[in-house]
Write a protein that binds this DNA or RNA. Structure first.
Length: 202
DNA sequence: TTGAGGATTCTC
DNA sequence: AGAATCCTCAAA
């Protein structure tokens, strides 16, 4: 298990240099790696666009909260949700485009002891990061990670590949938990994976 | 200054 | 089905 993480490399900016709905399915099976050894394999994502996407936090242009969405590809956009939870996005496209991919679920591949400490009530490993806020909690993410460069090997959180390709035929549905632009099929996932967000179409 | 609405999760 | 829990931002 840990061997896969040892050989991983951070993604190149060119691998994110496009609209979020193009990049998102390609991030399936990539890795989010913490500096303390925790790592998850991404199994579910959603694309969010800029001012053209009424479901996006960027729909009204730059604000204090969404500033990192307007940064360059590879920037982390971490936001506070429902007064309780944190969620993490990967910014894609060009600076100013406000394209971002919400990481909705992951599978723990390294650092299980730390994951367990972060989420003590979880029973099965597949429940450690099977939701956007659960994933952020498992990885210990909060406001201090907003704006981090996920493509720098020196960063506390990195977006990596261990050469496992995305699924040839990813699952695809409309996005979860939004009330606008509900017809855009911008959620992708590894079909049948046990760590998909619970209670959602899979 | 106000207040309505959250890219959610857990419990009852 | 309802609670938790508080930040953000548009509107007044």
């Amino acid at each position: 298990m840990t061997g896969a993480v040892e050989v991983c490399r951070v993604l190149a900016p060119s691998e994110l240099a496009d609209h979020s709905s193009v990049v998102a399915p390609g991030l399936l099976n990539a890795l989010l790696v913490r500096d303390d050894g925790r790592a998850v394999r991404i199994v579910e994502v959603e694309a969010y666009g800029g001012i053209d996407d009424q479901a996006s936090h960027a729909r009204s242009g730059p604000t204090a909260r969404n500033a990192s969405m307007f940064e360059q590809a590879g920037t982390a956009y971490v936001y506070f949700s429902y007064g309780i939870h944190w969620c993490v996005n990967v910014v894609t496209g060009q600076r100013g485009d406000a394209q971002a991919v919400l990481v909705r679920a992951g599978s723990a591949v390294a650092g299980h002891d730390l994951f367990r400490s972060a989420r003590p009530n979880v029973v099965a490993d597949c429940g450690l990061a099977n939701g956007p806020a659960k994933l952020a909690q498992a990885l210990g993410l909060d406001r201090s990670f907003d704006g981090v460069d996920l493509l720098s090997p020196a960063s506390p959180l990195r977006l990596c590949s261990d050469q496992m390709p995305p699924p040839a035929r990813p699952g695809c549905t409309s996005r979860v938990g939004i009330s606008r632009e509900v017809d855009r099929a911008w959620r992708w996932f590894v079909p049948g994976h046990p760590s998909l967000s619970s209670g959602r179409p899979s």
